[in-house]
């Protein structure tokens, strides 16, 4: 049910209504920004999917499950609405893993008081989660019979590079804005 009145922090894998709602909010944001970033002036020419930054951000702030949900469901919905069904299912799983890993990583990192350091750690942690999580697309080697070199050069690296730019720039920005708010809102 809800958080206990005395627990200061939810366990890493908790599945409360909070987790569900934040996961759903994250997935919806990811899907909408992923699908409609062309509405934002200036994004037409951005070759990256800026919305990807939401995935590690949600993982970091709202936990493993919310991060997993944001990436997995968000990406699946983008595919669903664009009409590819589950053809590229391993990309959705990879996205979900990024969120989950970010959640895990930051759950075990001690809080950092220095603001600049915190931003750097946030960016690096999110980047690490992205780099590791996206490794899941290597499943294509077994499932589709593609060569390692191809997966690295056509799938993994381009995605990593474009997502890394978005992650390194936008995750600390989001996190810095949310930091003072997380202390005030919330239960």
């Amino acid at each position: 049910m809800s958080t206990d009145a005395t627990t200061p922090r939810e366990p890493v894998l908790s599945l409360s209504s909070r987790t569900v709602v934040y996961g759903a909010v994250g997935a919806a944001l990811y899907a909408v920004l992923g699908l409609f970033s062309f509405l934002i002036p200036g994004t037409q020419a951005v070759q990256v999917r800026p919305a990807f930054a939401l995935v590690p951000f949600f993982g970091k702030r709202f936990g493993v499950i919310a991060g997993l949900f944001t990436g997995l469901v968000g990406n699946a919905i983008i595919d669903l609405i664009s009409g590819y069904g589950l053809t590229y299912w391993n990309w959705s799983v990879a996205n979900g893993l990024v969120g989950a890993l970010a959640g895990l990583l930051f759950a075990y990192l001690p809080p950092i008081a220095n603001e600049a350091l915190r931003l750097v750690v946030t960016a690096l942690g999110a980047l690490l989660a992205t780099a590791v999580g996206l490794l899941f697309v290597f499943t294509d080697i077994w499932v589709q019979g593609i060569d390692v070199t191809t997966v690295i050069s056509i799938n993994y690296l381009p995605a990593l590079i474009s997502d890394a730019i978005a992650v390194v720039i936008l995750v600390p920005a989001l996190d810095a804005i949310w930091e003072p708010l997380s202390k005030r809102t919330g239960r």
Binding site: T3, A5, T6, R187
Partner: peptide, 17 residues
């Protein structure tokens, strides 16, 4: 709103108070 949260149980069940 705090008073309402008392009546419906959000305090003490959901809010830490």
């Amino acid at each position: 709103s705090t008073l309402l949260r008392l009546l419906n149980g959000l305090i003490p069940h959901a809010y830490r108070a």
